[in-house]
Design a protein around this nucleic acid. Sequence first.
DNA 1: AATGAATGAGGCTTCATTCAT
DNA 2: TATGAATGAAGCCTCATTCAT
Lengths: 218, 218, 218, 218
Amino acid sequence: MQDPIDSKPRWERRKDARPQELLAAALALFVERGFASTRLEDVAKRAGVSKGTLYLYFENKEELFKAVVRENIVHAIGEAEGGLATDESSVNLLRSILMAWWEKVGSSSSGGLTKLMMTESGNFPELAVFYNEEVVARGNALVARIIERGVARGEFRPVDAALVTNILSAPIIMLMMWNNSYLPCDKKNIDTQAYMAAFIELSLRGLRADGAVAVAAP
Amino acid sequence: MQDPIDSKPRWERRKDARPQELLAAALALFVERGFASTRLEDVAKRAGVSKGTLYLYFENKEELFKAVVRENIVHAIGEAEGGLATDESSVNLLRSILMAWWEKVGSSSSGGLTKLMMTESGNFPELAVFYNEEVVARGNALVARIIERGVARGEFRPVDAALVTNILSAPIIMLMMWNNSYLPCDKKNIDTQAYMAAFIELSLRGLRADGAVAVAAP
Amino acid sequence: MQDPIDSKPRWERRKDARPQELLAAALALFVERGFASTRLEDVAKRAGVSKGTLYLYFENKEELFKAVVRENIVHAIGEAEGGLATDESSVNLLRSILMAWWEKVGSSSSGGLTKLMMTESGNFPELAVFYNEEVVARGNALVARIIERGVARGEFRPVDAALVTNILSAPIIMLMMWNNSYLPCDKKNIDTQAYMAAFIELSLRGLRADGAVAVAAP
Amino acid sequence: MQDPIDSKPRWERRKDARPQELLAAALALFVERGFASTRLEDVAKRAGVSKGTLYLYFENKEELFKAVVRENIVHAIGEAEGGLATDESSVNLLRSILMAWWEKVGSSSSGGLTKLMMTESGNFPELAVFYNEEVVARGNALVARIIERGVARGEFRPVDAALVTNILSAPIIMLMMWNNSYLPCDKKNIDTQAYMAAFIELSLRGLRADGAVAVAAP
DNA sequence: AATGAATGAGGCTTCATTCAT
DNA sequence: TATGAATGAAGCCTCATTCAT
């Protein structure tokens, strides 16, 4: 009965996989339906186990929710911090970080988690603190740093970097929300590519130093 | 025992006031707890009446919510639609409509309703339809009309009005969400006045026709 | 302000009419919807008064129901007892009493009351006793007397009159029930005239003494 | 701890028995109190389980009722449809189907269901549709087929089979109603055996072709 | 006598959580 | 470890009844 690959019996490996399967199922359903409307029975069913089993791994619904957030969001932020090419123009840097944010996070199911946090954080203040520290603060710092760099190099007009960071975040976060809610019902009509392009164009124009030359998208 | 103000007995005037009292209570609780988590009994209690009384004025929970939205948002949109000084420059028009949006709706407790809809519309499709028709569509049309006007008059560069409307909406909506969730725990630190000013400045700069002269805020 | 016809002021006459108006409204609604599903507010509305007024005349819903039954059923039974021409053949006598039962009672809204009694008597045992004594017993006696007469005169074969009375009652009562319920949904297809004719023909054939000649309907 | 009868643990077998226990409890209470007045909590209590358990087996109150009807009436109709010896005389066939109707359904507590439907179908249209399709239509078709057969074979005089079916149904249905209401308080005095015998005798006599010989009950 | 606003008990249904196996 | 039957608290909504005016 010993498994040849590792020293654990097959049945025990199964056990190790359980939490992951449950977290994946929970992520999908929480994103789709929100916290309150997600039934644990459905989570269990989607993970292929019984409702009771869920309670072997997570104390209750709230703890399951926290685990999902930890599993899916904190991890993503680190990667972004590492991958900045610093010899680019600030304009291109800002363009690429915003696009990456959308492409790596926003358009995946993690984008649903962002919406989820906006949505349900009110009912989980403790989670909100955690999320702010590990995700919001770090992500904002990343963007703000680029803006400050652009101002310092005369590429952007002088602006309050923190403020502009919030303003620049807003359309991307909204896109995630629109993508993960039934509001505007004509959301199908929102061309996310066009939206991102227009938003970036608008923002870079708004940011650029008055004497700066026009910037072409790559 | 006659009331000196009007000829109605005190008790009958009570009836006239009831809907307003209930709407106020409902607004506060919906914003604080969300739609699903708000218990009608609490709404009634806050309005100083019993559970059953609520049903004398509103057919059910959804209708109560719609009434709250109508009272607080639809009404404001109507005023905005009427109050456009048409001999203004498009820049000033856009500036004033965005500021009004924030001041009349966003910064009041009505802003919480916007967050509420983003949050829970998925679980209440009927509400989503209602909100889209009465709020989103009308509000967007209002902004889009001004953008098109500005483009037509050469004040703005040529843009897709619907797209830009969505982009311009995003920061304001996000501000409402930030103001009504625990998320940025440093939300107290967001200076909404500065945020709105910076956002509008950024947007108008991004929109203005390349040959246009700088526009001073009034 | 005195009314010339009688000495009561108009307003007081109104008061006298109230119970009748309420009873009429209650009859209609009880027949249409049954006891439990009839809302007193609807009764009041139909009578053109307010809900509170109803309680000035009837102690509660149950008393109203009893009053409706007393008002509408007991009265009808007396008339039938008086109107029997005794020199007819028993066959014709039976035929005419059954037809009268249907035409005078069954097909009117009183037929609905019969159904109502079958329906709701379980919840009003006291009413059931009353109804049995004043209506069922007296009505059955009427029919049984004719059957016994027919047997005694050799027109009918020897039968248990009480038993046959119940059997003969059944199709008529059922017709009232079918006419006052949604069951058989094809009730519109039941031609009550044909039903009564076929039922009487069947019964008289079944009853007639074996040697008797065929009896023509008048 | 293994159960000697079958291999299932005692607790699991419980599940298999639950629906039957619940159906039995529901039948008893529906018959005793009617559909609307029966509280599901009482049904559950009578079956020895909690309110919530009931919903593990039946979607809602109406489905529970349908299940009761299927279990007790539809099932019986199916048997009757199958069990017709076709080489019998139509007279004997009709006699046996009517007796079976009474004995298998009418005189049992299932008879109360028939009364229930007459009583409350008006307030539960969905139930009425269900009952009409699954019970009334099928039951009537069964009887009508025999009548048509008898007419075709010259055993019965020519009659409208649908009409006669309704007439023949009436006394049996009435018997069920009498047996399940307080109405004829002397219902104890109704000898159902004698009633059925007399009714069948009367009907067969009324139906038989004029030239036919007398038919002896088996 | 008449009104109609207000009440609150009661029923159906959902679902997170428990626990015997 | 895994199961899934069972629980029961809680929420929405209805409507007979009351009572201040």
